[in-house]
């Protein structure tokens, strides 16, 4: 290896190291977001202002929601089969793994091409949020009504034929 290429490798090494040092590490308490604005589903509903700090305090263990990669012991037995000793991961936000469109032709094809993939049945982002949030709220007595977390928008009212869009003959008997 000549001098020039050694220098090049050094430069690359420093660049990469610098990147890792500057990026938010989740093991570092200072980098954990206190609250999150969940906007990905805000068409029929308003966005959700998620109090991350409050939920961290209540739950106590990052792995209860984030499965693995946070430094806390893996809770789910099924995840633990492989991830007990997994290293902490760089990013643990829900959307970094759970796809926005889990049933798009593109995503289905991508899964199909990858014959060795274990996570073939990963819920999409919307399902991951709701299964995780509602599941726990049901058990712990948290709010479970749709609009307890996200009030409907006008488009939502129109879809649900509710509010200003409610059927006029509300009392009319439906067809059985």
């Amino acid at each position: 290896m000549d001098k020039k290429s050694t220098l090049k490798w050094l430069a690359w090494g420093m660049l990469i190291a610098g990147f890792f040092m500057a990026s938010p590490l989740w093991g570092n308490a200072g980098e954990i977001p206190e609250s999150l604005e969940l906007q990905s589903l805000s068409e029929l509903y308003e966005g959700v202002s998620f109090d991350h700090l409050l939920h961290m305090d209540m739950v106590g263990n990052c792995a209860a929601c984030h499965h693995h990669g946070t430094g806390d012991p893996v809770e789910d037995e099924n995840c633990a089969r492989c991830h007990s000793y997994s290293k902490d991961t760089e990013v643990v936000s829900c959307g970094s793994c759970h796809p926005l469109e889990p049933f798009s032709p593109e995503y289905l094809r991508e899964k199909e091409m990858d014959a060795n993939r274990y996570h073939r049945d990963m819920p999409g982002l919307k399902a991951a949020y709701h299964q995780s949030c509602l599941g726990c709220h049901n058990e712990m007595g948290g709010p479970t009504g749709c609009q307890d977390c996200h009030p409907r928008t006008e488009a939502g009212d129109a879809l649900f034929r509710a509010g200003a869009y409610a059927p006029e003959s509300g009392a009319a008997a439906g067809h059985h």
Binding site: A162, A166, A173, G174
Partner: peptide, 20 residues
């Protein structure tokens, strides 16, 4: 248009002929 809004849970208590 449905007879009732889609968020009205009272439909779950609706039954047709013969309690169906």
């Amino acid at each position: 248009e449905p007879a009732m809004p889609f968020d009205d849970p009272s439909v779950f208590d609706q039954t047709g002929h013969g309690g169906q």
